[in-house]
Design a protein around this nucleic acid. Structure first.
Lengths: 358, 358
DNA sequence: AATTTTTATGTGTGCGTTCACATTTAACTT
DNA sequence: AAGTTAAATGTGAACGCACACATAAAAATT
C-alpha cells in the first residue's frame, strides 16, 4: 500500500542529488546549511525510514564480535550462553556478523585478563562477556573505550554507563523470589539456610545481592528478623565433607526446613545427603542443568530458577547487532524473567532454550 | 574470513551463466539435465547459501498477512497478541510484510465466519487467527487451502497438519501445573474448585483439557480420586450472583481451599467475595491483565499462569515470515512456557511482554 | 535441407543503499 | 581579475540476487 520512500524520492523533492541526501543522513559533512535544512525538512515531512536491507547490502562490511567466556569444559553452565551466541551469529551472518571465541579459566582472574586482552588485540567491533571479576573487567572497559570497541555484558552486571547493555537476571530479586518459594504454604517464617556452594569468591556481589534479597523477603513479609542462616562451603566436590558440614548446621540450628543454593550446584546437596535427610527439606536452586533436572523430577529439588542462559547469549549478540547494524537504541539494562521451574513446566523451558541454541 | 559464495561464483565454476544457476535454484525449468547436475554439484561442493538480504531486495514484493481476531475492545486480553503482531510486522516491514486486521465478535461463531471469509477475499499470503470455533475454523481451513493461503494458529490449536504451525500453550499441562500450584506445601489433596467463568462454551476443548490436567495431577500425585469440583458460571458480570454461586458451592463442599479459574477472569472472584472469604483461599488463574496483577500484588490471587500473549502474536508473524520469506522449516507445534507468576517476579514478565509489543 | 517450433542459455537492468570520485560552485589570495 | 584553494554537489559503480528479454542451440516439422 503506502509505497516506501527512498533516498531518491527525498532528493527529488528537496531539489538535490542522492549523494547530498546521503551526506545529510550520515552526517558526513560538506553540505550547505540550506541544502541540509531542506533535506531534513523533506525527510521529516515524508517520514523517511532507511531501508536496512538495501543498506546492509551496500555497506558490505564485517562486524566482528569477540565472546570472552569461561571454558565450558570446566563448567557445563557456560556452554549454554555460548550456544545462544552461536545461534544468533548464524541468524545474522547475512548482515556480516562474525564471531571469535576466547576461553578463560573460571577460577582465575589473571587468566581472564590475559585472554580478554588477547581478544581486544584481534580488534573486534564488540566484546561480549560476563564480568565475573570486577577489577579486571574495569580495566578491560577502559582499554576497550580507548580502542572504540563496544562492550556488552551478560550474566553479571557492572553498574555505570560504560557498557552498551546488560542481559541477565536481577540478582537481588532472585533472592527475594527464592524467599517466596521457600515460604509458600506457610504462615510463619521457617528456618532457612542460604548456601554459597563453590570457590568463586571473586564475584561476591552477585551472591551478596541474592543474600540481601532473601533476607529482605522474610523481614518484609513477617516484619521482624529473618530466621536465616548464611553459609559458604568451598569444597563441593567432596560429598562426605559436604554432608558433615550440613549435618553440623542442622544440629546447631534444629528445625531447618529449606535451603537456597545460590548457584547451579543444588544437585550436590541431594547427592551428599541421604534420601530421608533430603525428604523433609525444601531445596531451591538455579539453572536447568541435567543433574538438577533429574532431582527436580524426583521432587528432591522443589524449585529451580531458570536463568535462560542460551537466551542470554542470543540476546547479547542481538543487542550488538541492533546497535551496530540496525542503529537502534538499546536499553542499558535488560532483565530476563525469573522463571519458576517445577517438574510440571520444566519441559517448555528446555524447549525454548533449545530454540535459542544451535 | 570465509568469503561468502555468490551465484556468480557458482556460475563460473559450473561453466554456465548466472541465469542458469538462478533457474536451477528456483526450479524454474528450461535447464538441460547436464547443466542442472553440474550446477547442483558445484552448489553442494561450495556449500552455497543464498544471501537473503540481496534476495529480498531484488524480490521486491509484498507479503500480506491477515490477522483475524476477537474485537479487543470487548476483551482486553486480545489486545496483547495484536500488539505483538503489530510489532513483528514493523520489525519485518523491510522484507515487504504488510498487515491487515479483521475483528470478529468473541461470542458469535457466525461473526467469525463472516469476517474470516472477508479476510480471505482480500487475498492475503497468510492468515493468522485463534481457532476458537472448531467447526467454522475447519471450513476456513478448507477454503484457504483452495486459495493456497497459508494458515497459522495462535492461542488455540486444531490438530492435524493443515496449518503451518500453532503458537501457544499446552492447555492440558497448564491444568496439571495449576494442580501443582494449588498443592504446594500440602501433603494431602485439599478440596479444589475448577471454575469456568464465562459464556464461551464453544471453545470447550481448551477448557476440558485444563480440567483433565488438574484432575490427572491430583490423581497421579495421590493415587486416588481427586477431590475436585467442576463448575461453570456464565453471568460473571453480576458480582452478587457470582458470590451467591460461590457461597453455595462452599456450603455443599465445606473445606474448599483452592480455586482454579480456567481463563483470565480470576479477578472477578476476588471482586465478588468479601475480604475474609478470599483470605483463606488459594486462587490460581491466567494472564497478567491489570486487574489480576492488582490482586496478585495484594496476595488475594496466589498464582497466575502467563500465556505471553504479545509474544504469541509476535511469534505467529515471525513463523509466517520464516516460512514465506526466509524459506525456513517451521515446527508445527510451538508450545510457549507455562510461566508461574507471583508478585515477586511479575514485573519481568510484563517488561518482556512490553518488548514484544509496540 | 530449409523452416518452424521448442528448449536452453546468456545478458542486462533494477531493487535502495554506500561511497569513491568527478565536477561545479563559492570563498580566499595576491 | 585571474588564479588558487576549499567547500558543495552530482554521478556512477558496487553489493548479490531476481527476472524479463534477447539470443543461441536443439528438436520437430515440412
Amino acid at each position: 500500500m503506502g509505497k516506501r520512500i527512498r533516498i531518491k524520492d527525498i532528493a527529488e523533492r528537496a531539489g538535490v542529488s542522492t549523494g547530498t541526501v546521503d551526506r545529510v543522513i550520515h552526517n558526513r559533512g560538506n553540505v550547505s546549511p540550506k541544502a541540509r535544512a531542506k533535506v531534513l525538512a523533506v525527510m521529516e515531512q515524508l517520514d523517511y525510514e532507511p531501508n536496512i536491507i538495501a543498506s546492509t547490502l551496500a555497506y558490505n562490511r564485517i562486524t566482528k564480535i569477540a565472546a570472552v567466556f569461561p571454558d565450558p569444559s570446566t563448567d557445563i553452565y557456560w556452554s549454554y550462553p555460548l550456544q545462544g551466541i552461536e545461534k544468533a551469529v548464524k541468524a545474522y551472518r547475512h548482515y556480516g556478523v562474525e564471531l571469535q571465541r576466547f576461553y578463560f579459566d573460571l577460577f582465575d582472574p589473571t587468566s581472564f585478563s590475559k585472554i580478554a586482552f588477547e581478544a581486544l588485540e584481534s580488534n573486534p567491533d564488540a566484546l561480549l562477556f560476563p564480568p565475573l571479576f570486577l577489577k579486571e573487567s574495569e580495566q578491560l572497559l577502559d582499554a576497550s573505550r580507548d580502542k572504540n570497541i563496544m562492550i556488552s555484558f551478560i550474566n553479571t552486571d557492572i553498574e555505570g554507563r560504560r557498557a552498551l547493555c546488560y542481559v541477565g537476571q536481577d540478582s537481588y530479586q532472585s533472592g527475594v523470589l527464592a524467599g517466596k518459594l521457600l515460604n509458600i504454604g506457610y504462615r510463619r517464617p521457617l528456618r532457612t539456610l542460604v548456601l554459597h556452594l563453590g570457590k568463586e569468591t571473586t564475584n561476591a556481589k552477585h551472591l551478596l545481592d541474592k543474600e540481601r534479597g532473601i533476607k529482605d523477603y522474610f523481614s518484609n513479609t513477617y516484619k521482624g528478623e529473618a530466621p536465616i542462616i548464611m553459609a559458604h562451603f568451598e569444597d563441593f566436590e567432596d560429598e562426605a565433607k559436604l554432608r558433615d558440614f550440613l549435618l553440623e548446621i542442622n544440629q546447631k540450628h534444629p528445625g531447618l526446613s529449606g535451603i537456597f543454593v545460590t548457584n547451579s550446584r543444588a544437585y550436590k546437596l541431594v547427592k551428599a545427603l541421604k534420601e530421608e535427610e533430603v525428604d523433609h527439606l525444601r531445596i531451591v536452586g538455579f539453572d536447568l542443568i541435567p543433574k538438577n533436572l533429574e532431582y527436580l523430577d524426583q521432587r528432591k529439588i522443589s524449585f529451580l530458577i531458570n536463568q535462560n542462559p542460551a537466551q542470554q547469549g542470543y540476546l547479547g549478540v542481538m543487542n550488538i547487532v541492533n546497535k551496530l547494524i540496525f542503529k537502534k537504541d538499546i536499553d542499558r539494562i535488560q532483565h530476563l524473567p525469573l522463571d519458576i521451574v517445577v517438574s510440571e513446566n520444566a519441559k517448555y523451558y528446555l524447549e525454548r532454550e533449545y530454540q535459542f541454541a544451535i
